[in-house]
Amino acid sequence: MRLAFVTDEDSGLKSRISSRFARAKNIVLVDVDDSWNVVKADTVHNTAAESGSGAGVKIVQTLADLKVDVAVGPSFGPNAALALNEVGIKSVTVPPGITIEEALNEVKEKISG
């Protein structure tokens, strides 16, 4: 399963979750296996942040192209929420400021119950 976390930092899994979704600086893609072990973590630049308007839809396009299953952010704007729903990417909210490692645990609890 592939998860995408939004952050303004560039320290991999130690980066903290941004206070905003579509206009965060970077996206950290985390691949986990069936028992939630991290297999791979990559940071990509979020180009959606640079568009004047329509950032919400653009970041979802990026995530869909990257075959993301779950998007993790502090909150999702109206257009981002609509687009995520439309392409079938699950969204999970976590408090901004926690690290991606911590966020991963929260997501694990929320998804696998």
């Binding site: 941004s18 206070s19 979704f21 206009r23 308007s53 329509g54 919400g56 909150s75 704007g77 109206p78």
Partner: peptide, 10 residues
């Protein structure tokens, strides 16, 4: 609109 969405986000 867009700019207000951005003012509220975060």
């Amino acid at each position: 609109g867009c700019s207000v969405v951005s003012a509220l986000a975060g």
